[in-house]
Each structure stands twice: as structure tokens, then as C-alpha cells.
């Protein structure tokens, strides 16, 4: 018998627990020739704010050992541009669409949320409070608990859509942020965003990124991400979406085992566009081998 891979996240039923991480899968069309989008658990599109943005100057990425530093700076089409240019495309598929949103002020976050509330065809909002590459505000929303609470409450009040704050990794107590999100009415949380980092060049004596610092992703961050997901999942009852360096089905199974109810594949999609689908197949094969009827039987299976 085929194991049941479906999960409920923030009231949304997903065929399987494997999503794409925001910023690593564009807005959908980029990978549509290579990946059957209908087979994904959900698509999380790249961060959107109110108006179109251009992002940072180049160089925007630097490869590091088993990782990737990026400081793209959230270029995007804005709410209207996304709804006009990308949403009709995404709606052709039978896959939940989560929009990652960000703003420069609490009011802007709330306005973006309210604007999407009025649009049909969106299944939920992931809230980027933790992009390390935006000078104005955004990073603080992820690391200052009072700011975090204000922004999550404001978004909660502005929309009926499921709200999923995406936590920043560089805080001293991740459980505090997870619990705060839950108390503010978040429907789920996702973690972890990229880790602040930097790379320099001894030949040019300069920075490798135009933004000087960036966010580290990829297999290099997996053990750190796994610990944070474990801590957060123990602290809250709402679903946790785990991510950070997931490249294989085994990686995904580890995140699910420590308590995540879904996972997201990020940087690994750059390496192999079909990573997310391979992870789905690998999870299915593993559950079958273990004789488990559903993926929820595996969530939290860690022997503590």
C-alpha cells in the first residue's frame, strides 16, 4: 500500500510535505519546463512587497564550501505585478501557492497582507521578517521580539489568509519567537531563513558580494537549522515547516523526525531542479520500507 503523503498546514491540504523555499524557485514559470509543478506539496514564491523593487547590485551570490551566500536584496514585481504577471500562470496548476511577503514598516507589511487578502487564488502568506540583505528594517523584525510581535499582529489583523512567519536564525532563543508567533495568531511557522555571513577575496582585498554581507544557505547550514527546527517544534502546537540545506529525502526525513510537519527545498533546486520531486519520491519509498501508513506517523518520530 502506498503511504499517505498528504499533510495539513495552516488549514491547507498539501499532497505531500515538500514545498519550495521562497527565493529559490522564482514565481513558478522558471522551473515549469523542468518540474511538474502539480507534484509539489506547495510553491512558495519569491518575496513580494508593495511596489516593484530592483534589489541589490551585483555580485549578488558567492559560492562557499557546501553553501551559497546571497544578497539578492529582494527584487520583485510588487503586489500588482505579481497578481498580473505570475498568479494566472500559477493558478493553472493544482498546487497550493504561498506568497512570501515583506515590507519596510509594520504598516507596509499590513498593507501587503491586506492587498493579498482581496486576491483569490492565494493559499497563504509566509512573512519574511528575516531577510538579512535589506538595509531598512526587515532584519530587525526578525530579531527584536517586540518588533516581531507588532508585525505578526498587524498582519494577522489585516488578513484572513493563513499567516506563516518565517523565523530568523540569529536569535538567542528561537522558542521565544515561535511561541510569540503562535500567541499572535499565526497558523504555522517556517524556519529557518539564511544565516548572516560574508566572504572576502584575498586577491582584490574586497568583499565578494556588492552588499558586503549576505545570507548563507545550502548543506552547510543543515545541522544548525535542524537544531532550531527541533527547538521550535517542541515549543509550539502550530505546524512547523522546516528548511535549511535540505538536499535529499534523508535530509527531509530528519527535519520531519524532529517535529517539522512539512519541509522546504531551497538552494538544492539550483543544483538540481528536480530535487523537490526526488525528495517526495524518497520520502514515499522510506515510509513504505518502514511500513508506515502516512507521513504524519513519521513526524516527531525522534526518540528523545
Amino acid at each position: 500500500m502506498k503511504p499517505d503523503l498528504s499533510v495539513m498546514i495552516a488549514g491547507i491540504r498539501m499532497k505531500n510535505p515538500v514545498m519550495t523555499a521562497s527565493g529559490t524557485f522564482g514565481y513558478g514559470p522558471e522551473y515549469a519546463d523542468l518540474v511538474d509543478l502539480n507534484q509539489l506539496g506547495a510553491i512558495v514564491v519569491k518575496g513580494i512587497c508593495l511596489a516593484p523593487t530592483k534589489g541589490n547590485l551585483t555580485p549578488r551570490t558567492a559560492e562557499t564550501a557546501s553553501g551559497l551566500l546571497n544578497a539578492i536584496g529582494l527584487p520583485g514585481p510588487g503586489v500588482d505585478g505579481f497578481v498580473r504577471e505570475y498568479l494566472p500562470f500559477l493558478r493553472q496548476y493544482d498546487v497550493p501557492v504561498f506568497v512570501n511577503i515583506w515590507g519596510k514598516t509594520v504598516e507596509e507589511y499590513a498593507e501587503v497582507a491586506a492587498r493579498f487578502d482581496a486576491v483569490s487564488g492565494i493559499d497563504g502568506l509566509e512573512v519574511n521578517v528575516s531577510c538579512p540583505n535589506i538595509k531598512e528594517g526587515s532584519a530587525l523584525f526578525g530579531t527584536d521580539i517586540r518588533m516581531f510581535e507588532r508585525v505578526v499582529r498587524a498582519i494577522r489583523a489585516a488578513t484572513k489568509l493563513p499567516v506563516i512567519p518565517k523565523l530568523a536564525p540569529n536569535v538567542s532563543d528561537i522558542a521565544e519567537f515561535a511561541c510569540c508567533a503562535e500567541a499572535c495568531g499565526a497558523d504555522a511557522i517556517s524556519l529557518i531563513n539564511s544565516f548572516p555571513g560574508m566572504a572576502v577575496d584575498i586577491e582584490t582585498r574586497g568583499f565578494k558580494l556588492a552588499n558586503k554581507t549576505g545570507g548563507l544557505t545550502g548543506p552547510a547550514i543543515k545541522p544548525i537549522a535542524l537544531r532550531l527546527v527541533w527547538l521550535a517544534a517542541k515549543a509550539v502546537k502550530i505546524p512547523v515547516i522546516g528548511m535549511g540545506g535540505i538536499t535529499t529525502a534523508e535530509d527531509a526525513l530528519e527535519f520531519l523526525m524532529v517535529g517539522a510537519r512539512a519541509v522546504a527545498v531551497g538552494t538544492a533546486s539550483f543544483t538540481n531542479p528536480d530535487t523537490a520531486l526526488n525528495v517526495v519520491r524518497g520520502i514515499e519509498a522510506f515510509l513504505a520500507k518502514e511500513g508506515l501508513a502516512s507521513v504524519s506517523d513519521w513526524v516527531g518520530a525522534l526518540r528523545e
Partner: peptide, 10 residues
């Protein structure tokens, strides 16, 4: 280049 397909914006 990063992803090669237009997603990463490198």
C-alpha cells in the same frame, strides 16, 4: 551565474 534558469537572479 547561479541557477541558469532565471530563478536566483544572480
Amino acid at each position: 551565474m547561479g541557477c541558469g534558469v532565471g530563478a536566483c537572479l544572480t
